[in-house]
Design a protein around this nucleic acid. Sequence first.
DNA 1: ACTTCCATGTAAGCGGTTACATGATTAG
DNA 2: CTAATCATGTAACCGCTTACATGGAAGT
Lengths: 173, 173
Amino acid sequence: MSLRHAVLGLLSSGPASGYDLLKQFEVALSNVWPATQSQLYAELNRMADAGLLRAAAEGPRGRKEYAITDEGLTELRRWMTEEEPVRVNRSDMLLRVFFLDVVSPAEAVAYLHRQAEYAAGRYEGLAELKANVTGTDRLSVYGRLAAEWGLRYSAATREWAEWAEAELKAARG
Amino acid sequence: MSLRHAVLGLLSSGPASGYDLLKQFEVALSNVWPATQSQLYAELNRMADAGLLRAAAEGPRGRKEYAITDEGLTELRRWMTEEEPVRVNRSDMLLRVFFLDVVSPAEAVAYLHRQAEYAAGRYEGLAELKANVTGTDRLSVYGRLAAEWGLRYSAATREWAEWAEAELKAARG
DNA sequence: ACTTCCATGTAAGCGGTTACATGATTAG
DNA sequence: CTAATCATGTAACCGCTTACATGGAAGT
C-alpha cells in the first residue's frame, strides 16, 4: 500500500491539504507513483482514522489541512528501512515481443522501431524536466536522482529496441 | 486487459489447457506478465464466452483444451499492431528515493547500496536464465530478446544506484 | 456576472492477490 | 496405499480508474 507511504512522505516536509497533495503528486511524483483525486481523498480519511495523520487546521471552502503524526513518521521510517521494494514488472511492451511472429516481419520491425522512438522521446522529455527542476528543496534534490534513473532507463530501452530491431532484420537475412 | 492478450499469444502457437497455460506463465512470462491460477481459469471462461477461444477437446480429470479462434487471432494481431503499450511506471523503489532525508544519511546510503546489490543479483539471475533458454521455438527466440531487455535494465539500475550512492556520499562531504 | 480555481467527496467497475475448496489420475 | 501431480473452480478483499456530484472563493 504505497500510496499511503507516498502521502506520509509528502507530509513529512510539512502540513498540506488533499488538494495540495494532489498537485504534488501531479508535479513531482507522476512518473513514479501517480494518484487520482478520488483515491487520495479517500486514503487521507482512512489514514486519519488509523492515526497516521491528523486534521491540523481548517481553511476556506472546507479545506482540511493534514499533519503527519509521530505514529505516521515512525511508519514512514519503518517502510523506508525495513520493507524491501516490491518489484512487479508487468510490461505490456515486452509481452508483445514474445508474440512478434504472429504479425508480419515488417510489422514486427516497425513495432520495435516505434518502441525505440518512444523511448527516445521520453528521454528528451525527462532531460527537459530534470533541467527545469533547479530547486534545493528535498523533492527537487531527490527528484533529480529519480529523473536520472528515468534517463538511464529510457536510454537503455532505446538501445535495446534498436538492437532488437537489428537482430530481427539480420534473422530475416 | 493484457492477461487476455497474453493468453491469446500463448494459444496462437497451439491448443492448451488452463493448466498448461499456467505453467507457461510461470516459466516463460513470469518476469513480464505474471498470472495466478485463479485469474487464469476465470479469464479463460470469459474469453470462451466472448468467442476468442473455443473448448477444443476434453481430457482426463476434467481437462479442457482450448484453441484460439479466428476472432481471437484477429484481436491478437490488432493488439500487436494498433494498440500502443501502456506505460505505467509505479516504482516502489524510486518512491523511497524522494523521501531519503527522513532517514539518517547512513541509512540512505545503505538503501541505495541494497538496490545496487539487488539489481546485480537480478542481472546474474537473468543471465543464467537466458543461457538456459536455448530452444528455437518462438517463446525461446523472443524470450531471449525479452531477457536481453531485462539484462540491460538491471545493469542500468545497478549503475544508477551506485552513482546515486556516490552522489549522496559526496553531498555529505 | 462569469469564469477559473479551490476543495472535497461518492459510486461503479475492473484487474489482481490470497485463500479456500474439490476431486481425478499416475508413479513409486 | 499413498504421495505427487494434474486439473478446475469460487469467494473475499484490495487498490486503482473513471465518472459523477457539489459547492465556495477569488479574479476579471
